[in-house]
């Protein structure tokens, strides 16, 4: 019998209050082992306080070809940033 273990993507929360961040991937037969392995592979130096594991196959990703249709429309909407609106210096609290 030869069956390669599934690939899991690993997310670590580095400190309380911060979001989990993707740190890499690893192979494991199930979620429990994926967490155990992630502890050894990605948190040997107190990098985390919480681990999420997700099977790579379950992640849906945008395609590089969709980059323009997805993200270009935001380029022309500079008014979404507060710096678009010059404010008089003498007025405070804006």
């Amino acid at each position: 019998m030869k069956s390669e273990w599934a690939l899991w993507e690993i997310f670590i929360r580095s400190q309380h209050g911060l979001a989990h961040r993707h740190v890499g991937s690893l192979h494991a037969p199930d979620a429990e082992m994926a967490i155990n392995n992630a502890r050894d592979v990605y948190t040997r130096r107190n990098e985390g306080v919480s681990i999420w594991v997700v099977k790579s196959i379950d992640i849906a990703a945008s395609s590089p070809d969709d980059k323009a249709p997805l993200f270009d429309p935001a380029n022309s909407k500079v008014y979404r940033h507060p710096t678009f609106f010059p404010m008089p210096e003498e007025v405070k609290g804006l």
Binding site: E4, L7, L26, D40
Partner: peptide, 22 residues
């Protein structure tokens, strides 16, 4: 143990190019 970890980070990086771990 770190060396094992380094091997695993790198195997994962190689796998993103379409070769399997096995």
């Amino acid at each position: 143990q770190d060396e094992a970890g380094h091997g695993l980070y790198l195997y994962s990086a190689a796998e993103t190019l379409g070769i399997s771990r096995d």
